[in-house]
Design a protein around this nucleic acid. Sequence first.
DNA 1: CTACCGGTTGGAGCGCACTCCAGGTCAAGA
DNA 2: TCTTGACCTGGAGTGCGCTCCAACCGGTAG
Lengths: 152, 152
Amino acid sequence: MKIGDLAEKSGLSADTLRYYEKIGLIPRPLRDSGGRRVYDRTILRWIDFLDRLKSTGMGIRDRLRYAELRSQGAASLSERRVMLEGHRDKVAGDISRLTEMLDVLDDKIDLYKRMEAGETVDPAFENCARTEHGAPSSKDRPANVESPSERT
Amino acid sequence: MKIGDLAEKSGLSADTLRYYEKIGLIPRPLRDSGGRRVYDRTILRWIDFLDRLKSTGMGIRDRLRYAELRSQGAASLSERRVMLEGHRDKVAGDISRLTEMLDVLDDKIDLYKRMEAGETVDPAFENCARTEHGAPSSKDRPANVESPSERT
DNA sequence: CTACCGGTTGGAGCGCACTCCAGGTCAAGA
DNA sequence: TCTTGACCTGGAGTGCGCTCCAACCGGTAG
């Protein structure tokens, strides 16, 4: 497999593949007689996994560290496991944040639909949905203000 | 509320708040007699919502667009709703991707644990968990290779 | 009066993750 | 043989999202 084929199969650009190689995310492939990279198709599984790590929020530092450990073979197994466990927890946290946001968005979309339909809705609830209930209280008013006009 | 107080309450730095103001994410606040920014506490809800948009993957362009629409008031309601619906779908997609990854990670962590325990596991399943089953087939071997030695 | 603290501005710098480009080599098809 | 096109290298450039800095100002406590 040449770099163009791999690019097509992996969804990354040839530039990105060379970049990943340069920084050490993917191992240096063999070369053909003309000096061109020749990839073993097993690299695809690794790239897929890397991609998943990335798309689930693992930064390049950690991916690099993981790649380094991987290249060290079986001796790094437990360290890799620890990294994966850490990432697992991060992903679980992200899922719950996103799920919360889904509720917020649904509420807000609903609110907007009702407002579009001409329903009278207390606009004080804007940007409050499920995160901060209630309209702003009148205590704790801003003091020291020069000219409290012009409300955006 | 001065910028330092808002920074503390919002979790953003004063620099970031000024930056958000500069690019138009948050409206220009009033100033006191000394030219210092004085914030209405309602800004906190907006900042919180912006933060949620950001932390759930909405880029700065879209947040900017949303902020612009918001500043136009009620006339932009339906356009904002459309944006939120788009984001909602994106978030829902992200949740399913993350949930998939959670499974992949759990499988992989399990695999590693078994390997650490000395169990004989086919290493061909590395980086395959739930995404690509089976070991690499022997058909489709890399051809045209000069020297298939030196395996990283 | 002076020191200090927290604010002001414009602009430079940074880390991530690519992305693009110039200028070259090489193999295969017309 | 000539041309085409994929590939090579090193390095510059890009967009996001801040973050830091110098140099300055103004109110308050000692």
